Simulated assay, not measured.
Amino acid sequence: MTRPLIGVTTSARSGWRIFPLVAFNLWIAGGKGVRWVAGRPADLDDVDGLIIGGGDDISPDLYGGQLIASARLDTARDAMERRLVEGAMARGKPVLGICRGAQMINVALGGTLDQDAYGTYTASRKVWTVLPKKTVTVCDGTRLDEIAGDGPMRVNALHSQAVKDLGTGLRVAAHDEGGMIQSVERLTDPFALGVQWHPEHLFYARRQRALFRALVTAARACRDEEGQIAAVDAEMAAPS
């Protein structure tokens, strides 16, 4: 059976080293990735699903926020990714958001961001590493709970912003010890899940590989014109 094709957005600056990691995770999960960069063709009709990757902060112009001096922006990428998320929702195609990508899913669906998240959530432990040194708690009864299991999860962290007000149709799926949102998910088809950490660096961890497995399952269901969340539910319930 042909592997579902997943469009993967990356930074023009660092995507050359990040995309192979994401593509590796997708291949393990049964999919195949194609890299998309702002300024080059990125057609949703050519793929079965979408990953919005990590990178620079999202411009507050997209959600009516205030620019802070320390923010590093990529407005061309912002415009491309917002268009892609909105287009994926309109076409019924599944989306996985990684770090910045989780934030972009939220913004594209009408939500806002906290630009100084660790200034707001002072009890949240601030780390900046690809190693799993931060603890997040998966919320009971969420799809992330079903996919990756409940309870505390050790993850990495490379972010300064976080989701503030939720976008339409989203709910919180995980938070850290200080209450900062660490994951959001869509309640209905099309499947959409955003995580604040970088699971592509944690391919050795079963719970992180499960995120890519869920996306590939939803992408296959989308291609076959079947229910995506129902397919993910069945896949996660099956013995691994």
Results as ranks from 00 to 15, higher is better:
72 R>T: 13
211 L>M: 12
35 R>Y: 06
118 Y>R: 03
108 A>C: 02
227 G>M: 06
114 D>A: 13
26 L>G: 03
30 G>M: 04
233 D>Y: 15
153 M>A: 14
90 A>C: 05
134 K>E: 00
201 H>R: 13
89 M>R: 06
172 V>M: 00
73 L>M: 00
233 D>K: 14
191 F>A: 06
65 G>A: 07
161 Q>N: 11
163 V>L: 01
15 G>R: 09
207 R>Y: 13
176 D>L: 10
36 W>D: 02
156 N>A: 07
47 V>K: 05
44 L>I: 01
112 T>D: 05
78 D>R: 05
49 G>L: 04
6 I>G: 03
186 R>T: 02
170 L>D: 03
17 R>E: 11
154 R>Y: 08
214 A>Q: 00
17 R>Q: 10
213 R>A: 15
105 I>N: 08
121 Y>F: 14
30 G>Q: 03
7 G>A: 13
57 D>T: 07
186 R>V: 10
52 I>G: 07
199 P>V: 09
40 R>P: 08
5 L>F: 04
109 L>C: 00
228 Q>C: 00
177 E>L: 07
229 I>T: 13
31 G>Y: 00
93 K>D: 00
92 G>Y: 09
42 A>N: 05
163 V>C: 09
43 D>V: 14
136 V>W: 07
22 V>S: 02
74 D>N: 15
220 R>K: 14
140 D>Q: 11
65 G>T: 06
68 I>Q: 14
62 L>R: 15
176 D>V: 10
54 G>W: 02
119 G>M: 12
181 I>L: 13
165 D>A: 14
45 D>C: 04
12 A>T: 12
31 G>S: 12
231 A>T: 01
125 R>K: 15
64 G>S: 03
200 E>V: 10
160 S>E: 14
206 R>H: 14
21 L>T: 12
6 I>K: 04
37 V>D: 03
214 A>T: 00
199 P>Q: 08
67 L>W: 08
214 A>P: 00
168 T>D: 14
68 I>N: 13
51 I>N: 05
103 Q>H: 06
79 A>M: 08
108 A>S: 09
184 V>P: 04
71 A>F: 11
136 V>K: 04
99 C>R: 00
14 S>R: 13
63 Y>G: 13
178 G>V: 00
239 P>L: 05
40 R>D: 12
153 M>R: 14
192 A>E: 06
99 C>D: 02
17 R>H: 11
199 P>L: 11
103 Q>P: 09
116 D>S: 12
137 T>K: 08
151 G>Y: 10
193 L>T: 11
57 D>H: 04
61 D>W: 11
27 W>H: 14
161 Q>Y: 09
180 M>D: 01
46 D>H: 08
94 P>I: 02
95 V>I: 15
219 A>S: 12
152 P>C: 07
142 T>W: 14
206 R>N: 07
173 A>S: 12
107 V>G: 11
228 Q>L: 09
27 W>C: 10
36 W>A: 13
175 H>K: 15
